[in-house]
Simulated assay, not measured.
Amino acid sequence: MLQTTIQKTVRCKGIGLHSGKQVEIVLRPAVEDTGILFSLHTGVGSSFITPNPDLVVATGLATTLGNGKDSVSTVEHLLAAVRGMGIDNIHIEVRGNELPIMDGSAGPFVYLLRQAEVMELSKARRVMAVTKAINFEQDGKYVRAYPHDGFAIDYTIDFDHPQIGRQTLSLEITPDVFVDELAKARTFGFLKEVEYLHANGLALGGSLDNAVVLDDYGILNEDGLRFVDEFVRHKILDFIGDMAVMEVPLQGRFEIFASGHALNNSFLKYLYANAEDYLEERVLEPLYDKVAQKDLSPVYPEAVPVPA
Results as ranks from 00 to 15, higher is better:
M1I: 04
T5M: 09
R11F: 07
C12K: 13
K13F: 10
S19I: 03
R28K: 15
V31G: 13
V31W: 08
E32T: 15
G35E: 10
L40V: 07
H41V: 12
S46T: 15
T50N: 11
V56F: 01
V57F: 01
G60A: 08
T63E: 06
L65Q: 07
K69A: 05
K69H: 13
D70C: 03
T74W: 01
H77F: 05
A81V: 00
V82H: 04
M85K: 04
H91G: 10
E93H: 15
E98F: 02
G104N: 05
G104Q: 03
V110F: 01
L112N: 05
R114P: 02
R114A: 08
E117Y: 04
S122T: 14
R125D: 00
K141I: 02
R144N: 11
A145I: 05
D149R: 14
A152D: 09
I153V: 15
Y155W: 03
G165H: 10
Q167C: 11
Q167F: 00
D176G: 04
D176Y: 06
D180C: 06
L182M: 05
L182C: 11
E193C: 01
V194I: 14
Y196W: 15
A211W: 09
A211V: 09
V212I: 15
V213L: 13
L214T: 04
Y217W: 10
I219W: 08
L220V: 05
V232R: 01
D238W: 01
I240K: 02
I240Y: 04
D242T: 01
M243L: 05
V245F: 03
M246C: 04
M246V: 00
V248H: 04
P249E: 10
L250F: 02
A258I: 02
S259H: 07
H261C: 02
H261F: 01
N264T: 02
N265S: 05
L268F: 03
L271M: 14
A275N: 13
V283R: 09
Y288D: 09
Y288G: 00
K290P: 00
K294H: 13
Y300K: 09
E302S: 15
P307S: 14
A308D: 13
